[in-house]
Nucleic acid binder design. Structure first.
Lengths: 349, 349
DNA sequence: CTGAAAGCGCTAACAG
DNA sequence: CTGTTAGCGCTTTCAG
């Protein structure tokens, strides 16, 4: 434990000296290599290699005004739900960002004061004012969330994962997953397997996301001319709510299958089936939404609608680059179609 | 879509002008407020407030050499396992970092070239050379992982989540969870519930982490004078391996309970029980490790060892601050004790 | 306690 | 195509 100071990284000047050129030429070699004579370029690149040089990000940021950082707010982790979908999304986003030369900066929403509603905007504000990030990815676009309009007001560059439900004219770029298409897929899958009395287990009516997903079930049922009366129920997105509601539904409407707005609710259905000695799949079909890890490992495997998160991340970053380059973005946003991961919970016999 | 340029954030000079002082005085008001006369300080603070000023991070970074950023490498997400523990940890880390005035920068390990082993170090190297982060949190400290020694060699500041299994003398700060204590807790819990033939379902022998966890089971069994012959098996950390191995173990050794090295393996046991018409809890006790979301929601609830990730994050950040302040760190690292989340899979009757 | 000057490493404008 | 100059916004000397 003698001299623990890390060696100072080489600067542009060091490279210039070694290559026998001016600092500016080194800068050009990195940012506009076409300007250099091939011979000079090679010499500079060799020096860069030899010294292990990489441009200092702070200096570059100060000079260019771009931090090459994308801010993402981590919403508090939900325990006792199945929606660990954030994990997969963050991975995908980091990967997509890297390919575009960006890093992801994580932040949370300021100190949580007991008794007070946490300030969702504090984190954005601090980052914005200190010019720490070039742009934000906004994920919680549920109705009434002030983030999007607040950012738009401040002219902060951002792209939303989720449609602007509350404001059709907001005009910011967004990417979303077509929930209706997903549940349509789920319902059709159950219909193909011979189910007719297919129930909907969804969220409360004020959730636009939930209504979107519900619509897919309704459409698929209507397309077959099947009645849906008494087959739908709307509850909170909790395990217990799914448990209770599915038990009640089995008693009142005797469905042979459930399409659910989330894996959390679907797992609730599985609990009901276990309690009644029914088998998920052969006895009662169950489909979730999110394709969470839980869906993948829970016995007998939960069939689930899988959002294309990798694709979402790629589209978000693409929209972001366009935005930062001040290119006009497509007015309508990007809507991606999920797939269906079929597992034991919809197996017959 | 007229003038979409966000307004330029105010600078130190703007604040100085408004407050009628020099730029230096504003800087002092922020960094060494004790130096100012209370009256002046109040005036400056008022100006800061009025303008919504926050110091430009790039400029500060360039000047002080500190980015106030902590680098964390996202390892590729595992599908079909229960270990979504990263999510909870990242949250906790973001929170702990915020309280210390740091943000978390996420990165991944360079481009993955087909056929080649991905370069774990590329991401670290790039960040280090461009002085993008002040320090790293390293999470994959399994045996043979080159990250720690590579970083140490470069004198890069880092703290490890996980003991330096391969090198007792490595001398870098670390924080870890006492796996043996966790499985001891798990085993004692089963013993209290009347189990005697308690099996161990763990990882391959070359996993030091797995051996640590196994030791707790052995200790608890030995303390009661119970034999463990034929009751232990070591497999890969996959659902299928847990499934197969537990089935074999039930046939050969007839255990009444399983302590597992991971939730993934424990879920494998649940699959075996379902297939045999046995009930987890009343018929066969099962305990996992990680307290993943899966453990929380899978019927009938998986009892699991819960690593104190929030505490881990706090200790990691504490060690990091000490390291960056060049204070001597405690030689031994910090070992934290997990708790046991008791659920239906260990309920009797 | 407050003000003036220097410079962190880089790139955008110019001059050669 | 290459070299010189200036300055991004901040903090750290050093004088007053």
């Amino acid at each position: 434990m003698v001299d623990d100071q890390p060696p100072l990284p080489p600067t542009l000047a060091d490279v210039a000296e070694l290559a026998g050129v001016s600092r500016q030429t080194v800068s050009n070699a990195i940012n506009s290599p076409a300007l250099l004579r091939p011979e000079t370029l090679a010499r500079v690149q060799h020096a860069i290699e030899a010294l292990g040089y990489a441009p200092n990000r702070a200096a570059r940021h100060l000079r260019t005004g771009s931090s090459r950082l994308i801010g993402l707010r981590m919403s508090p982790a939900q325990e006792f739900t199945a929606d660990a979908t954030m994990d997969r999304f963050v991975h995908a986003l980091v990967e997509a960002s890297r390919e575009a030369g960006y890093h992801v900066l994580l932040f949370s929403g300021g100190p949580v004061v007991a008794g007070e509603r946490p300030d969702l905007l504090a984190g954005y504000d601090a980052l914005l004012r200190s010019t720490a990030v070039d742009a934000f990815i906004v994920t919680d676009t549920y109705l009434g969330n002030p983030q999007a309009s607040w950012l738009a007001e401040r002219r902060a560059p951002f792209v939303a994962f989720g449609r602007p439900w509350d404001d059709e004219t907001s005009g910011h770029p967004w990417v979303d997953v077509d929930g209706a298409a997903g549940t349509r897929l789920a319902t059709e899958h159950l219909l193909e397997r011979g189910h007719q009395r297919i129930a909907w287990l969804g969220w409360r009516e004020d959730s636009r996301l939930g209504e979107d997903r519900r619509a897919g079930w309704e459409q698929a049922m209507a397309a077959r001319g099947l009645a849906t009366d008494g087959l739908a129920v709307r509850v909170e997105d909790t395990l217990d709510a799914g448990w209770t509601a599915s038990a009640a539904l089995l008693d009142t409407a005797a469905p042979t299958a459930f399409v659910c707005a989330s894996d959390t609710l679907a797992i609730g259905v599985l609990h009901t089936l276990v309690a009644r000695g029914l088998r998920a799949g052969p006895d009662v079909g169950v489909v979730g939404f999110d394709d969470s890890q839980v869906a993948q490992v829970v016995p007998p495997g939960l069939t689930s609608v899988r959002p294309p998160l990798e694709q979402v991340a790629v589209e978000l970053v693409r929209a972001l680059r366009r935005l930062l380059a001040h290119e006009p973005h497509q007015a309508e946003g990007v809507l991606l179609t999920p797939t269906l991961a079929v597992r034991g919970s919809t197996a017959r016999g």
